[in-house]
Design a protein around this nucleic acid. Sequence first.
DNA 1: AATGAATGAGCCTTCATTCAT
DNA 2: CATGAATGAAGGCTCATTCAT
Lengths: 214, 214, 214, 214
Amino acid sequence: MLQNNENLMVPRKEREKHARQQEILQAARVLFAEKGYHDTTLEEIAHKAEFAKGTIYNYFANKDEMFYGIIENIFDEMDSITAAAMATAGASAREKLTAYAKAVIAHSMAHSDLFMLMIRQAHRQLTDEFDEKIKNLHERDLATRKTIAQVHAEEISNEHLKAYDPLEITFLFEGMLRSYCMYHIKARHQLTTAEIDRAAELIVAVYFDGIQNK
Amino acid sequence: MLQNNENLMVPRKEREKHARQQEILQAARVLFAEKGYHDTTLEEIAHKAEFAKGTIYNYFANKDEMFYGIIENIFDEMDSITAAAMATAGASAREKLTAYAKAVIAHSMAHSDLFMLMIRQAHRQLTDEFDEKIKNLHERDLATRKTIAQVHAEEISNEHLKAYDPLEITFLFEGMLRSYCMYHIKARHQLTTAEIDRAAELIVAVYFDGIQNK
Amino acid sequence: MLQNNENLMVPRKEREKHARQQEILQAARVLFAEKGYHDTTLEEIAHKAEFAKGTIYNYFANKDEMFYGIIENIFDEMDSITAAAMATAGASAREKLTAYAKAVIAHSMAHSDLFMLMIRQAHRQLTDEFDEKIKNLHERDLATRKTIAQVHAEEISNEHLKAYDPLEITFLFEGMLRSYCMYHIKARHQLTTAEIDRAAELIVAVYFDGIQNK
Amino acid sequence: MLQNNENLMVPRKEREKHARQQEILQAARVLFAEKGYHDTTLEEIAHKAEFAKGTIYNYFANKDEMFYGIIENIFDEMDSITAAAMATAGASAREKLTAYAKAVIAHSMAHSDLFMLMIRQAHRQLTDEFDEKIKNLHERDLATRKTIAQVHAEEISNEHLKAYDPLEITFLFEGMLRSYCMYHIKARHQLTTAEIDRAAELIVAVYFDGIQNK
DNA sequence: AATGAATGAGCCTTCATTCAT
DNA sequence: CATGAATGAAGGCTCATTCAT
C-alpha cells in the first residue's frame, strides 16, 4: 500500500504542475485575445491567474513560451474537432464537412478569445519564419488541412466532386468558415445551436452547390 | 497678383505636407508589415523615411495616428478596387466578382505587406471598440462589403442567384478570396498574371457553381 | 547510561550540523570562485551541495553569511600555514619565509578558487568598513601579517636584517608572493613541486638579496 | 569662413559626445569602486552623472560597456605613466623604476577608486576568458609589463643586474608596489609627496638590494 | 520646419528569502 | 529537518514623446 502510494506520488505532482500551467494559460489567453500580446503585461496575467509575477516563471520560461503554450492548446483542440468530424464512418464528404463546420462554428463562438488569437498568430506565422516552434505550428496546420483535403480526394476519385485540387479548395472552404465566424464575433452575436446548424448548412450548401440558380 | 500668389501658396504647402506624410506612411507600412506594430520603433520608421525622429511628430500626433493613416490608405485602395470592379456597366454579377477577385489577388500579391497589416488590423478592429477611429474603419469596411452585396442583391431579385442573404454570402466570398491570398503569401509564391486569372476563376467557379459534380 | 547517551547526543548533532555546513561551503566556494558572488545563485549552490534551496537556510542565515563562512575557512587555512612556517624552532627568518612561500604557493595552486576569492574579498574588505564581520576579518588579516612581521623584528634586532619597518616590508613580501601566484593562476600553469620550490627560493632571494649584482 | 565653420561642426559634436561619455564614466567609476559592479545600479550612475537613466544608453550600449570603458581609461593612464617613467634618456634601471614607483603610488593615492577597480577587474580577467574584450585587456596588461621587463633585460645584459627572468621579476616588483598601495588605501592614509618618495625609494631599495644586512 | 539628445514610465526577468507541507 | 513552490522587490533596458537649438 505504501509503495502504491509512492507510485502515485510523482504523477500527482506532475498533474498539479500541469493543472497550474493550464490555469495560467487560461488567464493569459483571455488577456492576449482581449488586448494583444504586447499590450498584456505579465503583471496582469499573474494577477488574473492569482499568482505572483515570479511564480509564472516556475511554469513558463518566458512570455513567449506562454504564448506558444496557448497556441498549441488551440491546435490540439482544432485537431480533435477535425479528427472527430472526419472520422464518421460511412459519411459522405458533404456530411463530414457539415459536421466539421458545425463544430468549428460552435467552438469559435464558445471560445471567441481563441479565435482571435488564431488571427493574431496567423501574423506571426507569416513573419518569424526562422523560429523552430513557428515551423512546427506551420506543419501542424498543414497536416490538419490535409486531413480535410483527403476527404475531398476520395470523393473526387469517385467523381462525386469536381476535379479540383483538393488542398486548394480545402483552403477555400476554411476561408468561408473563418470569415463567417469572424463576422459574427465582430458583431458580438451569440448564435443558438439552431443558428449554428443553419450557418454550417449554408456554408456547405454554397460550397457544394454554388450560389447560382440552375 | 500678390493675393493670387498667396492663394496658391497655401495649397502648395499643404500638398508638400501631404506628400511628406505619405512618404512617412510608406516607410512605416513596410516596417509594420514586416515586424508588426510593436516591434517597429519610431527610430526605424524615421530612418527609413529619411527624416529625424522628431520630424515625424510634425506630421503625425503619435505612433497610433500613423498606424491609422496606413489603414486608411489601405481602405482607400480597397475602395478603388471594389468600385472599379463593381462599376462595369452591363456586366453580370459573376463577371464583376471575377474582375474583383482578380484585382484583389493581384493587389494582395503586389502589396503583401498591406495584406498582412489588414490581418493584424482585424484584431484591433475586434477589440478597441471604444475608439472613434476604429468605429469609422468598421463602418467603411461594412460599406465596401455592402457595395458587393448590392451586386448580389440585384441578381437575386432577377433570380439568377439563389435567395441567400446577400451580405452573408458576400462574407463567404470574401473569406475564400482572403484565404486564398493568405495561403500563397505564406508560401511566398509569386503568381503570374495567368495564375492570378486562373485562381480568380477557380474561386468564382466554386462560389457560383459549387464543387459538386452534377 | 542514558545521561551519558544524551551528553554524546548533542555533540554528535553539532558535529553533523558542522559537517553539513562545510559541505555547503565547499559547494559555494567553488561556484563563487568560478563565477563570482553575484553570478552564483542559491539554486546552484543548493544543487551542487545536493540539498534543497530551503535547506541551506537551516545552516546559514543568508547568502552573505555563507560568503563569510568561506572567507573564514580560508583565513583558518592561511593561519595554519603561517603558524606552521613560523614555528620551526631554530630556523632563520630566511628559512621560515622560504617555508612560508613554498606553502603559500602550493596552497594557492591547489586551491586557485580560494585565491581568487581572496582577491574578490579584498575588495569588500576595503569598502564595507561598517560591517562588524568585515572588521573582524581585517583584524585577523593584520594579526597574521604581524606574526610574520615578528619574525622580521627578531632578526632586525640581531642586525641580520636591515632596520626597515617590519610590518611594512612584510607587506612587500606578501605582495611579491601574491603577485607571483596570480601570474601563474592567470596563465593556468600547473606548477610541479620542484617549480614551486624554485619559485619560493627566487622570491626569497630577491627579497633578501635584491636583484642588483654586487 | 562659412565652410570653415562647417568643418568644425562635426568635431564639436563628437567632442561633446566624448566629453559626456567621460562624465558618465567618472560617475560610474566612483560608484563601481565604492560598491562594486553589481551593487551599483544604473539609476545611481545616472543620478550621479546628472542624467536620466535612458540617456546613459545614448552613450553606452549597456552596463558592461561602461565598465570596460572605465578599465580602458585606467589602462591608458597606466600606459602613460609607464611610458613616461621608462623613457627617461640616460637613466639607469634603478632610476627608471624609482620614477615609475613614485608615479604609480601617487596615481594610486589620487585615484584610489581606480586602484580598487583594478583589483576587481583582476578577478574578471581571471574568469571570463572567453570574452574578446577581456583578452584585449589581458594583452595590453602584458604589453605594459614587458615594457618594464625590457628595462631589466638591458641591465641584465650589462651584468648590472642578476640574471633573473626579466618578466618574472617584473611581476615581483609590481607585486610589491601594488601591495604597498593597497595597504595604505585600506588604511585610508593620505600620503604626502615626501612620504610617497620615501615609499618608492624603500620599495626600490628592497627590490635592488634586498633586506639582508651584509 | 528639422533635429536628435534627454527623458522616464514601464516592461520582462531574476533571485534571495519565506513558509506550508 | 528537508523541501520547493510562492513571493515581490529590484534591476537592466527600451522606446514613445518632448523640446531646446
